[in-house]
Amino acid sequence: MSENLLSRRAFLQFSGVAARNSLIVLSLPTILTACKEAALAQTENARFTALGSAEAAEFAAIAARIIPTDETPGATEAGVIYFIDNVLGSSRAEMLEPMRAGLAELQAAGSSMYGTKTFGTLSNAQQDELLASIEETQFFNTMRYLTIAGMFALPEYGGNRNLLGWKMIGFEDRHMWMPPFGFYDADYAAKGE
């Protein structure tokens, strides 16, 4: 089932001008219903739709190490897990079972390394060490993909709550801007270049 997850190389391609070569797919296309996950938007305190609460807590704990909470909010505060739950139940349904299998492997590794199966109960240092050991796996890359998507997608998909993802990097979604847009064009105008 790992063909439904992302390889490291494939993952990076999503940052290009156009996403391509990204999923390694060996099956014929599944035509999913139109991507109207927005209709399934999560609200505060919503229940999970695709995930059970225990596994949701584990995925949320992983997301919290990918975009941690430090001096500023991270994946947890942005509600990334609700995005993940949303898309694993809709446009990325093909990823659900492989992600469960990946989580089980991670938990088994945690169990043998630290004697604790539950990822969420490990210390931050242990969690980071464990994740670093699986950094090249499709499971981790897909987890990273979903975490980032949930951090920066429109809030109507369930994550990016209170626009925390956008605020973090200095992006503001507006329909209108006026020049100057940055420092250098303001300087250019001031100097009459």
Partner: peptide, 9 residues
């Protein structure tokens, strides 16, 4: 794009 920037790393 915010997501694309983050995906790139």
């Amino acid at each position: 794009l915010p997501m694309a920037a983050a995906m790139r790393g």
